[in-house]
């Protein structure tokens, strides 16, 4: 029983981290029809920037805004420089952002080296808490709570705020939004930049759990892609539910069948997508 609770919490931790990565990826795709395969590399970039700042200042809390800023700037530049290609055919987008993913990956390797590193959890959370009969790291619980808070906050922003309404209008019908006088390209640039900034933040938040290392960029990208298509592109609630699902399935798969871990994760995914090609909450065909 204890083991189960422990694994469930681990799954929720993983799912929470995935939510931060996938939400940005999914909204950018839903809004702009841009599939950004360099999203995982931006996540890792955020992680390493956070690590550097944490090393220099000793503050975990300073590392987060620094990583968000750096990743946001990177996202802004990508979106600015390659806007023509990004707005062009899906095929070229995929190739371009895949190329960028390789370039970022190799640049990170060149700057920070290949040795896996970690950012220690902030002191105030570097302790363990008794919960549901198990002793569990406080930092991980913090992540789970944060994801729920962020999920609810984003939901309110998305469904209730004026800005959210504008973004949703752009997701649903770009031409209509333009006709209503919304400056779609500014909304796009903002969302792309924000998506990257959130990925950067996730890089720092995830570091005490996953570490920061070359290769993590791709693992995270793949999981975020899976979350996005399972949840349904452009859907925040879908991303939230799918993140927790994927986090749990991945964790249990690894714990129960370590030799088949990829199989246990991806077989359900493939089945879900075959039954529901639009994903659980999807309205937009992900083509």
């Amino acid at each position: 029983m204890r083991l189960w609770v422990f694994q469930i919490l681990n799954g929720l931790t993983m799912g929470s981290l995935l939510f931060f990565v996938a939400a940005g990826l999914s909204v950018v795709f839903g809004l702009m029809r841009i599939l950004n395969l360099s999203h995982g590399a931006i996540f890792l970039f955020g992680g390493f920037v956070g690590l550097a700042v944490q090393k220099a200042t000793g503050s975990f809390w300073l590392a987060i805004p620094a990583a968000m800023l750096a990743a946001g700037i990177l996202g802004f530049i990508i979106q600015k420089v390659f806007s023509t290609t990004l707005m062009g055919s899906r095929f070229n987008q995929v190739l371009l952002t895949l190329g960028l993913a390789f370039i970022f990956n190799n640049s990170i390797l060149a700057i920070w080296g290949g040795a896996p590193q970690t950012i220690p959890a902030p002191e105030i959370l570097a302790t363990s808490v008794k919960v549901l009969g198990v002793t569990y790291p406080a930092y991980r619980l913090f992540l789970i709570v944060l994801a729920f808070v962020a999920g609810i906050g984003l939901w309110f922003f998305w469904e209730r705020s004026r800005l959210g309404a504008i973004v949703r209008a752009c997701v649903d019908d770009r031409d209509m939004a333009t006709a209503m006088g919304i400056r779609v390209e500014i909304v796009f640039a903002t969302v792309f930049t924000l998506g990257a900034a959130i990925a950067g933040m996730a890089g720092v938040l995830g570091a005490p759990v996953l570490g920061v290392s070359i290769g993590l960029d791709f693992d995270v990208l793949l999981l975020a892609l899976v979350v996005m298509v399972v949840g349904g592109v452009g859907s925040l609630s879908g991303a939230f539910v799918a993140s927790l699902m994927v986090g749990l399935v991945d964790t249990f798969g690894k714990a129960l069948f370590p030799e088949l871990s990829y199989f246990t994760l991806f077989s359900p995914v493939i089945i879900i997508l075959i039954v529901r090609p639009l994903g659980l909450f999807g309205r937009i065909p992900p083509e």
């Binding site: 795709f29 899976v226 997508l273 083509e287």
Partner: peptide, 12 residues
């Protein structure tokens, strides 16, 4: 499935 989902499924 097509497009993005096809890409993800083949990758997976």
């Amino acid at each position: 499935v097509r497009g993005l989902t096809f890409l993800t499924i083949t990758l997976a």
